[in-house]
Computed example of a mutant assay.
Amino acid sequence: MKEIAVEFEKHNESDKVKELEDAVLELADLSEDSVHLSSAVQAIANRYQPKEEVNNFRKLLEDEVSKLKGQSTTSDPNSNPLVRQFKEAVWKVHHEGQPMPGEEQEDIVMTSTQSSILNMTCPLTGKPVTELEEPVRSVECKHIYEKRIIMQYIKSSNRCPISGCPKKLRADRVVQDALLLIEIEELRKMNKETEVEDFTLLNEDD
């Protein structure tokens, strides 16, 4: 959507850009909700004890989701990496080199997908995140791992395997959110573009 929005912005089709921005904001909200829901289901499953009376699972789930939302530190959708990257790409069309509104000149502007993907390789498999079969991300520290391997790891240790990371991991808080897949796909595209540029430069040198 970012690339499409950039094209619309180049042609000053602001209404269409706004529609895409609203869609990105909605996607960010849905992604956050899916993470909370997944964590809530896992948490309830871990605590569940069969009883004679029938449990109201809907109520349990709603309460758990509400609790997780209350603990969330990402309530502002504009701080979501996907939303930020979208807005920055659109802003740069007509304001290249200028800080976005609300940013100080000396602020470091995060413009690449790499800035929202904290680790480029899985610490347990050594594979680039773009090659992971089932990438998952810790809700706590945002580090990315291969799901099967990290779930095995958590059984024996709850500390994030990234060197220097103090966060502790829980199986129900290591999830595959929708944004992660989008960010990884963006990273793949960036890597391909870099490869093409490098190949072009090599040919020019020849």
Rank of each mutant, 00 (worst) to 15 (best):
M1K: 05
E3F: 03
I4Q: 09
E7G: 04
F8A: 05
F8T: 04
E9A: 14
E9P: 02
K10L: 05
K10P: 11
H11W: 06
N12H: 10
L20Q: 10
L20T: 06
E21T: 13
E21P: 06
D22Q: 12
L25C: 12
L27W: 11
L27Y: 09
A28L: 02
D29G: 07
S34Q: 10
S38I: 07
S38T: 14
Q42W: 12
A45T: 09
A45R: 15
N46I: 10
R47V: 14
Y48S: 12
Y48Q: 15
K51E: 15
K51P: 07
E53H: 03
N55D: 11
N56P: 04
R58N: 15
R58D: 15
L61E: 10
E62W: 03
V65C: 06
S66P: 02
K69Q: 11
Q71Y: 10
S72E: 06
T73L: 08
N80P: 08
L82D: 02
L82R: 00
V83Y: 13
R84C: 07
R84L: 12
R84I: 02
F86L: 13
V90Q: 13
V93D: 07
H94S: 04
H94V: 05
G97R: 03
P99S: 00
P99D: 02
G102D: 13
E103W: 11
E103P: 03
E104Q: 06
E106N: 07
E106V: 08
E106D: 13
E106A: 09
I108C: 10
V109F: 09
V109P: 06
M110C: 10
M110S: 14
S112I: 01
T113H: 08
T113G: 07
N119I: 00
N119M: 02
T121N: 11
C122R: 00
C122H: 01
L124D: 05
T125S: 08
P128H: 12
P128V: 08
P128A: 04
E131F: 02
E131N: 08
L132S: 01
P135A: 00
V136P: 01
R137W: 03
S138G: 01
V139C: 09
V139K: 11
E140P: 02
H143Y: 01
Y145G: 00
I149P: 03
I154C: 01
S156I: 15
R159N: 14
R159V: 08
C160I: 01
C160S: 01
I162G: 01
I162S: 00
I162C: 01
G164Y: 11
P166T: 04
K168A: 06
R170T: 03
A171D: 09
R173N: 15
V174A: 01
L179Q: 15
I182H: 07
I184Q: 05
E185D: 13
L187K: 13
K189N: 12
N191A: 08
E193V: 11
E193L: 13
F199D: 08
F199N: 08
L202N: 03
N203V: 11
N203L: 11
